[in-house]
């Protein structure tokens, strides 16, 4: 937690919208990326991110300290789960279709169109592998390997113990590895021999 965060939280709890928006500004990128990686859809992630901060503002008075980042990411992951469940009930827009959206991958800065294409395709495959994971494993993998959270922060964000985090993380990594091994041609040279 950053030094000024306790004050920002207190001011937000007093109803100071400016203080809360400072918090939003600080964490909105992480919230959006977590939602996008969990959902595999940038458009849905936009709605989830907005809902996350609205819910956070309503519940800020109930924040009792700890990692503000973990608290916000937990709201984001819960909102993402709700969206996944609602999409399953109404499969009009398939999540798989959104994952194949070329807008999901960011163009690489490296030269060469072929390289760019391969990289883009690899990122798509990685995202597909992440999206194929169970939601509990998916969140842990995104928090730790995508967002760089620690085991403690991840345990706080998902509301479980560190042992559970370790277990889910190891399984998620193994499944992504198995999925990527089916597309060795896309892997970098150093990983093709694994």
């Amino acid at each position: 937690m950053q030094p000024d965060e306790p004050q920002l939280v207190e001011d937000s709890q007093q109803g100071n919208l400016s203080a809360f928006n400072t918090i939003v500004e600080r964490y909105q990128s992480q919230v959006y990326n977590v939602a996008a990686r969990i959902l595999g859809d940038r458009f849905l992630a936009e709605d989830v991110a907005q809902e996350t901060f609205i819910s956070a503002h309503r519940a800020i008075k109930g924040f009792r300290g700890g990692s503000l980042k973990a608290w916000l990411l937990r709201i984001a992951s819960n909102q993402s789960y709700d969206t996944i469940r609602s999409k399953k009930r109404r499969p009009a827009d398939s999540l798989e279709e959104s994952m194949e959206n070329p807008n999901f991958s960011v163009p690489s800065s490296e030269p060469g169109p072929e390289q760019m294409a391969l990289q883009s395709e690899l990122q798509e495959k990685i995202q597909q592998a992440i999206s194929s994971l169970p939601t509990d494993q998916r969140a842990v993998l995104v928090f730790i390997d995508v967002q760089g959270l620690s085991y403690d922060e991840t345990a706080e964000a998902v509301g479980t113990s560190i042992g559970t985090v370790k277990s889910r993380l190891s399984r998620a990594r193994a499944r992504v590895r198995d999925a990527l091994m089916e597309h060795r041609e896309l892997l970098p040279d150093q990983f093709r021999q694994v």
Binding site: E46, T52, F53, V106, D145, V146, V176, R177
Partner: peptide, 23 residues
């Protein structure tokens, strides 16, 4: 194999914000 997964996932780019989510 586990190290490969970690490395590749870690190489996923950070997505740009489509807009501000300030209230």
């Amino acid at each position: 194999g586990l190290k490969m997964s970690v490395a590749l996932i870690g190489q996923l780019p950070e997505l740009a914000l489509p807009r501000s989510f300030k209230l």
